[in-house]
Nucleic acid binder design. Structure first.
Length: 184
DNA sequence: CTTCAGATCCCCT
DNA sequence: GGGGATCTGAAGA
């Protein structure tokens, strides 16, 4: 094998640090249609159909008041996986710039995913992602997000779900042709 | 230490 | 569409 060759797989190219090191709202939009790939005992794949952006100066952002024990992964650099628990559920985020992240709310099953994947808690359960995975790198670990050149047909934005602050801001994005995405 | 709100889910009506 | 389950992290006393 040529070691210089870029890593390519049938699931597409692993998104680079450069992809995450951009405006968080752009990253949230661009993550739609990308593949979450978890390679453990079996390989599980799902395609992202719903995201939310949590940005600087955002009162709903866990990093709003700076770094804490919970959100320390949000300060480890672009492409870090941030997993937190709320209401006994796990939620997965992709860290973009310092103290900013994109919550992945829903995906479509592609391979070895039998449980439901609509909703951040259910998605993590179906993909087997836990708080053990908090702080891992999406650039080089068993969990990655990849681009297989698929593009969603159309993207819609709305206020975020379950968030009381910044309700006037459209920071949620979802693929509108996906049947499991409810509108607003 | 105690309180409480929360980036949710499920079941009931 | 409404309320209870469930539990962790953060903030206040």
């Amino acid at each position: 094998m040529n070691s210089v060759t870029k890593k390519k797989t049938p699931q597409g190219n692993v998104l680079s640090r450069r992809f995450y090191d951009r405006d968080t709202v752009l990253v949230a939009r661009d993550l739609l249609g990308k593949l979450i790939v978890v390679e453990r005992n079996e390989r599980r794949i799902a395609r992202i159909v719903e995201t939310e952006a949590y940005v600087a100066g955002d009162p709903a952002n866990h990093a709003f008041r700076g770094q804490t024990k919970r959100n320390r992964s949000m300060f480890k650099g672009p492409g870090t996986l941030y997993v937190y628990a709320v209401h006994a559920q796990n939620c997965m985020n992709a860290v973009t710039r310092l103290g900013e992240a994109v919550l992945v709310r829903a995906a479509q099953p592609v391979e070895n995913v039998s449980e439901r994947t609509s909703g951040p808690g259910l998605l993590c359960r179906a993909m087997g992602i836990t708080r053990e995975d908090d702080g891992k790198s999406l650039l080089q670990s068993e969990i990655s997000i990849r681009d297989d050149r698929y593009s969603p047909v159309s993207i819609v934005s709305s206020p975020r779900i379950g968030v009381t602050k910044w309700k006037d801001r459209h920071l949620r994005f979802f693929v509108s042709d996906n049947p499991s995405s409810h509108c607003e």
